[in-house]
Design a protein around this nucleic acid. Sequence first.
DNA 1: CGCAATCGTTAAGCATGCTTAACAAAGGGA
DNA 2: TCCCTTTGTTAAGCATGCTTAACGATTGCG
Lengths: 183, 183
Amino acid sequence: MSKSINDSSYWREFERNDITHSAAHYLMAIDALREEFGYARVTDVADMLEVSRGAASMSLTQLKKRGWVEEDPHRFLLLTDEGRFMAQLVERNFQILSKFFQDVLKVPKEVALGDACKMEHLMSLETGRRLTGLMRFICGDETREAKVHELISSMQTACKSSEECPLCEGGECLYPAEFTSDT
Amino acid sequence: MSKSINDSSYWREFERNDITHSAAHYLMAIDALREEFGYARVTDVADMLEVSRGAASMSLTQLKKRGWVEEDPHRFLLLTDEGRFMAQLVERNFQILSKFFQDVLKVPKEVALGDACKMEHLMSLETGRRLTGLMRFICGDETREAKVHELISSMQTACKSSEECPLCEGGECLYPAEFTSDT
DNA sequence: CGCAATCGTTAAGCATGCTTAACAAAGGGA
DNA sequence: TCCCTTTGTTAAGCATGCTTAACGATTGCG
């Protein structure tokens, strides 16, 4: 268990992720601005993300070099097909994760949105697609959905014993008493 | 939707997260080494994480300043109570996420472990606890577990129409045809 | 004891990504 | 036209976190 979690073959994949958190938000900002106003300039992106124009300018230059951002004939910012793909991937991940956390796990909105926003650019397409499937299963039947919620809300304490818990079999309890109240 | 995803009040929380990915792995490495060998030195941590001794030294100095790491009477590395709490939080998140991705969502192992490792330090205690509850629900009944798997494996194509899909109601389909094959 | 290997720290360099500040280029009103 | 504002770029500084290299301080063997 502890042997593999620190295996360098994948723990450092974090810093080599396809897209950084920051880059994802620059792309999504362009998408959102074009949708809302029909165009996006460096200053608009900077305002939306509340970063300086300098930061936006430098980041967008990198995104242009990477082939995700272009300028249209009027020198307005534009996503390339690949850029739009990345933006949509991250945005869809955010939507799925925040919906999953809020509607299925019943995590308080603020926490759910915070977690989803941090994780949105890190979940692979494969995982996102399958998570969508799980949610179609749960949300597709009201009785089932209600039962999930009932069970989750009753699960405020640690499992009684490793024997009867399908998760803790053999090992230690994943959520012992000291972890059942919030941080 | 696009309005809130770029709201600076939380998109920049990513860089202010309680613990960085790197810091989490330093803490978990100390934990793992002490468990396996009874002690942990800077060099051992560096070897386990496959970083230079210089990097390990500097990072561990920061973790000492932060109160998560100490030295024992023999000058070996030791986690403080708070440090152990953080390490266990992240490790438990990794276990829950990788189990969820592999055993519930049936994501291929390599992808599941990669995703879990990237997200492990970003999921809040609250969300992790509730995810554990969901998994107790699903894995606690074989019929239910089988049904979830059947449904997820059949969900390889986009939903037929927004009308009948509990997720896409109103808006666009989250997983239209062009996204249903892997990247 | 002494030499050599190991251990831990520190410095310099690089990359990311933010800040503020300076500046050139373009735009708009009197 | 002139001036002032807005826009976008660039430079310098800071923080994180990695690299390699140099450096003392141990440690251990013959």
